[in-house]
Design a protein around this nucleic acid. Structure first.
Lengths: 107, 107
DNA sequence: TCCTTGAATAGATGATTGTCTAAGCAGATT
DNA sequence: AATCTGCTTAGACAATCATCTATTCAAGGA
């Protein structure tokens, strides 16, 4: 985790930092994935079952599954199977880090 | 500006909020555009000339111009011509808003 | 053991995107 | 005016992406 904490507006990002951050932003650059992320993050208990998520969209199961995979591979969420259902939860540190990067310059 | 301030992790984004936010994240979902944004935001005086920006990349002028257009149309930056050169500056409120949306749940 | 249900994978397709070259426009200088 | 430089627009092309259907896997219940 190289591009850690310095706000984007403090000093220029180097190529590695930009490449790493762009992967995270790319994962969020879709309305369905943003809503999925928000549904999971705001769900009671900090986790949500895929069955809950699918109902919120006019999309097929495989499409939802695809978006969850993108979010998973970006490191924003993790999924865990418990019995019949798969539960997803967010990684708050990753959200926090992105939030910190975007804070405008204080000057 | 509808999807204003409530963190993503507080309550689920509705479709409109997600659509609007995804445009901003899409604009940042590219390493070149992230570096451009950072170069502009961190530049002395709060603004940077295109000529300064182009030198930082191994890309043609038109490509840089294209990325600046994407950032401009997303509302993250504005460009102004003064004499020979065009100067860009960021809109800090937009960065601040995104930062606020990403703040993880406090609970 | 077989069937049912929840979820992921595979593969296809139309749309979007990042980059380029070529051409155009806006100021400044001669 | 003629030209030069800084930047943008236009158009083309390969690569990536969002979505779908069909298939597969995993866990439970009959």
């Amino acid at each position: 985790m190289d591009a850690c904490c310095s706000p984007l507006a403090r000093e220029p990002l180097n190529e590695d930092q930009a490449a790493e951050l762009s992967k995270l932003f790319k994962a969020m650059a879709d309305p369905v994935r943003l809503r999925l992320l928000s549904l999971i993050a705001s769900h009671a208990g900090g986790e949500a079952c895929v069955c809950d998520l699918t109902d919120a969209f006019d999309l097929t199961g495989p499409t939802i599954s695809h978006h969850l995979k993108v979010l998973r591979e970006s490191g924003l969420i993790t999924g865990e199977r418990r019995g019949t259902w798969v539960y997803y939860r967010v990684h708050p540190e990753v959200l926090a880090r992105l939030s910190a990067v975007l804070v405008p310059a204080t000057t």
